[in-house]
Amino acid sequence: MSYLLPMAFALFLWWFSTGLIFYLDQLPVRTFKWTMAGATAVLAAALYAIWASAGDQSAFAVYAAFTAGLLAWGWQEVSLYTGFVTGPRKHACGAGCSGWRHFGHAIAVNLWHEVAIVVVAVVILSLTWDSPNQWGLWVYLLLWAMHLSARLNVFLGVRNVSEEFVPPHMAVLKSFLTRKPMNLLFPFSITAATAGTLLLFQQALAAETMADRTGYSLLAALAGLAVLEHWLLMLPLPVEKLWRWSLPHRPGAAKSHKSVPPRIDYTALNTKLTP
């Protein structure tokens, strides 16, 4: 139970929080200001929890720091897919755009989002500096690594791009999704993720204290999910069934004739988006 309970907790928290973000990002645009206000309040609470638990080496404090780190990462996802923190580029690439130029456009679309990730990482690092409980930092960094690897693989080309998870108001992102049987990065990504997962499981099994056993078990479960997510990019499976409850069942989701998009001009794209 000392291993299974943390793993089950990590799996449930990842599944539920991911589905909740999908649900919120598919709501009418007029709700986004409230979503961002709530997410920012949660971020502030998560940072406080990371700071408050930094000196505590109990198993409960490990759970608290882990949950707070995951919630801090959730703010990044919400801010991107609601369109509040994206990048200076607001339009899709035209036909024929490829190579490093296309990669530069992809960075420009997400630039402020990536900067925000670094800023929050530095804040968490400063809050836990030289403290025994740094599990909030580790989970945040692990989620960042998962995010970066998945984004690069989707950009380079995978079988299952899961474009149904991209909300309509962020359709510009679809021009940077590439469908291919394989890309050269994927074997390295899946190998590194698998090796990292095995090492974390090994650390959990070798841990001498309940706090370390709990922390490594939580991270190992999350790393195992990273391996699963990478394989799902290459397998033509109906991934959306995992979060069917969170996806919209009405054509007007993420759209409203009375809604005003937050700080971004979501003018309808004239360029046909390449899947």
Rank of each mutant, 00 (worst) to 15 (best):
L4D: 02
F12R: 11
L13W: 13
L13H: 05
V29S: 01
F32T: 02
F32E: 00
A44R: 11
A49L: 12
W51Q: 14
Q57H: 13
A59C: 02
V62D: 01
V62Q: 07
G69P: 08
L70S: 09
L71R: 05
E77Q: 13
V78I: 14
V78N: 06
V85K: 03
V85C: 00
V85F: 08
P88N: 08
K90F: 06
C93I: 15
G96C: 02
F103R: 11
W112H: 12
E114D: 10
V115D: 03
V119C: 05
V119R: 10
P132G: 00
Q134I: 07
V139L: 13
V139R: 01
Y140V: 03
H147C: 02
S149I: 13
R151P: 02
L152C: 06
A171E: 09
V172A: 02
K174R: 07
F188R: 10
I190M: 00
T197R: 04
L200W: 03
A211W: 01
R213Y: 08
A221V: 01
L222R: 04
G224M: 09
H230L: 13
L233V: 05
L237N: 03
P238C: 12
V239G: 12
V239S: 15
R244D: 15
R244H: 14
W245M: 11
S246A: 15
A268E: 15
L269Q: 04
